[in-house]
Design a protein around this nucleic acid. Structure first.
Lengths: 189, 189
DNA sequence: CGATTACGTCAGTGATGCTGACTTATGTGC
DNA sequence: GCACATAAGTCAGCATCACTGACGTAATCG
């Protein structure tokens, strides 16, 4: 049953108050979301510190690791930061040998990004930390938490970005919200 | 079925690799978590900009709004930042009349924090934005998403902090993970 | 061959976090 | 009452990560 249906409002209308009885529950969700994200990133942050890196480096390293051949423009779309903000951390990752570039074969203006062996090692190490936490949390949440959580998180993403994200994360399962299939496309657009 | 059970590992052991077949799904969860949080905060950030505030101001305003009489030390625990980081944003919120302090009656060293009418209005406005997004996402995720998501998010929180958070968010429902009841305690400890 | 695109870079700014040291006011225990 | 602990505020300095705006270079496209 829909939360808004329960309070007599139209499905899909994003205006109007939510019943107070339910409001507290939803606020609790928002607060839990804050605490969960705070601790989701905390472990990885500690490791990154040892390398002199921050969360921004992690994000770049992660998406390049997961999507070899990613272009700079793609990263800008994914991270939603400016070229200048990206440039600083990307330069460090390249200078210290975690990420490498090569020119595109068809379009030699493009710098296709890859992780080095060193970069892959760190990226996987960080991903493992976060994955274990998620795995444990899904177990604690109970059966079906897996698909349910993916649907919830996916629906939290701004509507305009969902297609891009769906293509990026390449889940083999049926697409949770839009109903379309979710197979990987070769390159981010 | 547990993810780790499925790969033949001990329940509760936080070491060892996760099966590759499942690994991609879990990585997708991590990426979805990033995108979801990014967009969860984006709307509120835009409003805050108009007031010259940032996300740090929002967090302070929110928790003071939800927990009138909160002490500065409580906020430091909740936000896990230093006194100096808090001082900057708290001072602004007080100077601009969104938050007020009064000395504790029993211990006059304590400064008990409250929102003003102006502060409550802004805090509620921001909470509504985030609540609507969560409500819509829970609807999209399907029935039972509500309780399931709370259990998942709660389990994502670092073990040591769960009791504190449980007491803070005062959910009327049964506690999702630890199994204990989750009624509000009068003050954060 | 001019316009656009992809990328890199320079200069300056602001928000948010940090450490360490110090002060003030108040409460507590011997 | 005095020593110590606690709650809060403050100062000085620093790092990370974000921003804007402008400009340069190389390559592609029409």
């Amino acid at each position: 049953m829909s939360r808004r249906e329960a309070t007599g409002q139209l499905e899909g209308a994003l205006t109007g108050p939510v019943a107070d009885r339910e409001r507290d529950t939803l606020v609790a969700c928002a607060e839990l979301f804050f605490f969960a994200y705070r601790d989701f990133t905390a472990e990885a942050d500690k490791i990154l510190e040892q390398y002199g890196f921050g969360r921004a480096h992690h994000r770049v390293l992660h998406f390049v690791n997961r999507n070899p051949g990613l272009r700079v423009a793609d990263l800008l779309h994914i991270l939603q930061i400016t070229k200048q903000s990206l440039a600083r951390v990307l330069k460090q990752l390249i200078d210290e040998g975690f990420v490498a570039q090569r020119s595109g074969k068809e379009d030699r203006r493009e710098r296709l990004l890859h992780v080095t062996a060193k970069g892959a090692k760190l990226a996987d190490k960080l991903a493992d930390l976060q994955i274990r936490r998620i795995s444990a949390a899904l177990d604690a949440a109970g059966p079906e938490a897996d698909a349910m959580t993916r649907r919830f998180l996916f629906a939290m993403i701004g509507e305009k970005d969902r297609v891009r994200v769906r293509d990026l994360i390449r889940l083999e399962t049926t697409d949770p919200v839009s109903g379309a299939r979710a197979l990987a496309t070769p390159e981010v657009t």
